[in-house]
C-alpha cells in the first residue's frame, strides 16, 4: 500500500483490520464483503499479515464470521489474530466496527 507521493499518503479514509495470515483472516475477508454491501473491500496480502480495508467504516458481525468459519466464534476471539487496524475501533459482543470520525 504505497503511493507515488508519500507527502499525501496520509490523505486517505482507510479503515479495517490487519490480520495475521490464517483461516480467521480468510473468514474476515468474506465477512467484510458480506457485512459491508456496496463497499469496495481491499486486501493487501503481505504473507505474514493481510491488510483488509475499505473507506470510512467497516462492520464485521459475529454471525457472519461464524458462518464463514463453519464453527462458533466469540467476537473477542478476533484478538488472537488482530495484529493492528486502521481507523478507530468499537468492540461489542456481536460486532466490531472500524471507523473514522472525519472524512477527508
Amino acid at each position: 500500500m504505497t503511493t507515488k507521493n508519500i507527502a499525501t499518503a496520509d490523505m486517505n479514509n482507510r479503515v479495517g483490520p490487519v490480520m495475521r495470515a490464517g483461516e480467521l483472516a480468510d473468514a474476515i475477508i468474506e465477512a467484510a464483503r458480506e457485512d459491508n454491501p456496496g463497499k469496495e473491500i481491499r486486501v493487501d496480502d503481505k504473507r505474514a499479515y493481510l491488510r483488509i480495508d475499505t473507506d470510512d467504516e467497516m462492520i464485521l458481525r459475529r454471525e457472519t464470521i461464524e458462518r464463514n468459519l463453519g464453527r462458533p466464534f466469540k467476537m473477542n476471539d478476533l484478538e488472537v489474530d488482530l495484529s493492528s487496524f486502521a481507523g478507530r475501533i468499537e468492540t461489542g459482543p456481536d460486532q466490531i466496527r472500524f471507523y473514522l470520525l472525519k472524512h477527508i
Partner: peptide, 28 residues
Amino acid sequence: RKQSFKEFMEEWIVAQFERSINDLGLDK
C-alpha cells in the same frame, strides 16, 4: 525483502498512524 524500509514507513506511519492523529483532532 517484502518492501523497503521507506515503503513500510509509508504504510504504517504515514498512511495509518498520521491519519489517526488527524482523526483525533491533533496536528502533524
